[in-house]
């Protein structure tokens, strides 16, 4: 088997085993109702994680997304409160803004040859600060259009509800998978992750690709912000602190190498679902502290990092033997 599929397979196996354990204790976990909730509750995380997957495959990191989600929520809430604009118009403005924000970070990383970690860390503070400037307090969103969106769902067999935002997440994943494997942009992302200098010598436009990667991550953070505002009906500048780290965790558990160059968007979906599943199990159990979620995710992450090291090591050996 192709060695680069191994982390993906490992993720899938862990997911299935975890689900089997849950199902053995709580058969209701297999119902479409639980699955529907799993998708809805993790919709915003899944959407940012898609962008994060591209960033990490390219060998970078984007720490700004959690703050951008919070900013988006506050921006929408304030605009809807203070102006008569239709939410769709507000969404459009927001997405332009967050995409440009991402593009600016990407361009900075490329032009100034700065580490992505530093640039997006600055972006994180900047976006969070902007959210505070708009409003320190939580701003509720009351709009008919929001009520409509919240009540939209598709009734799955077994009475489960696939909500608008859950569905949107699945669409984003499908688009992400296509973009990663079936477009030149996607190939360039893998190429940059495999070695930026080599990629440049092979004719990959480094500047354009880097800018596009972070712009895409910014766009998805904006969409996640919209989804989060639909999910909570409010905008709050203190919301979604640390979501960037959850997204990174989901990406790594999904089998993407933190060193860049290798990974799958589909794996990230499974990563998000594993994290959601752990949370659901703890809610079902009722006696466990919710901190157990963090502990389990921490252990999983650790296991995956060890797996990745092992994989890099064995493929390195094989290569040496082939020479």
């Amino acid at each position: 088997m192709n060695a680069r599929l191994l982390p993906l397979v490992a993720t899938l196996v862990i997911f299935l085993v975890a689900y089997a354990i849950c199902y053995a204790q709580y058969p209701v976990m297999l119902s479409t109702r639980v699955i529907g909730n799993l998708l809805t509750d993790n919709a915003f995380l899944g959407i940012v994680a898609v962008g994060m997957t591209f960033v990490i495959i390219s060998g970078g990191i984007d720490l700004s997304v959690g703050s951008v989600i919070a900013f988006s929520g506050v921006f929408i809430a304030v605009m809807l409160r203070d102006t008569a604009l239709h939410p769709m118009a507000v969404f459009a403005m927001l997405l332009v803004l967050t995409t440009l924000f991402g593009a600016a970070m990407g361009a900075t990383i490329h032009l100034l040859e700065m580490p992505p970690f530093i640039v997006t860390l600055a972006g994180m503070f900047l976006a969070r600060g902007m959210a505070y400037v708009l409003s320190i307090d939580a701003v509720p969103i009351t709009h008919d259009f929001y009520d409509q969106m919240q009540s939209m769902y598709w009734l799955m067999p077994g009475k489960g509800r696939l909500t608008l935002i859950g569905g949107l997440m699945l669409v984003v994943f499908i688009v992400g998978i296509g973009l990663a494997h079936r477009t030149r942009f996607g190939m360039n992302v893998y190429a940059v992750g495999g070695g930026a200098n080599t990629a440049a010598l092979m004719g990959v436009p480094l500047g354009r690709t880097t800018t596009a990667i972070y712009a895409f991550s910014g766009l998805l953070a904006g969409i996640a912000g919209i989804v989060f505002s639909i999910y909570t009906s409010a905008g709050y500048s203190l919301a979604t602190v640390g979501v960037e780290l959850d997204a990174i965790a989901a990406v790594v558990i999904g089998g993407t190498l933190l060193t860049g160059g290798s990974g799958f968007v589909a794996g990230t979906l499974i990563g998000v679902l594993i994290m959601g599943l752990i949370q659901t199990y703890i809610i079902f159990d009722g006696t466990l502290s919710s901190w157990w979620t963090k502990i389990l995710i921490g252990m999983l992450l650790f296991a995956f990092i060890v797996l990745q090291k092992g994989l890099v090591w064995t493929t390195g050996k094989k290569r040496a033997a082939g020479g």
């Binding site: 190939m187 360039n188 092979m202 004719g203 160059g261």
Partner: peptide, 18 residues
């Protein structure tokens, strides 16, 4: 002179990149 292909891509992807 430096080997200039990407080890993380497949042979076909390397040949057709761009």
């Amino acid at each position: 002179q430096e080997v200039n292909l990407l080890p993380n891509l497949t042979i076909a992807e390397n040949l057709s990149l761009g």
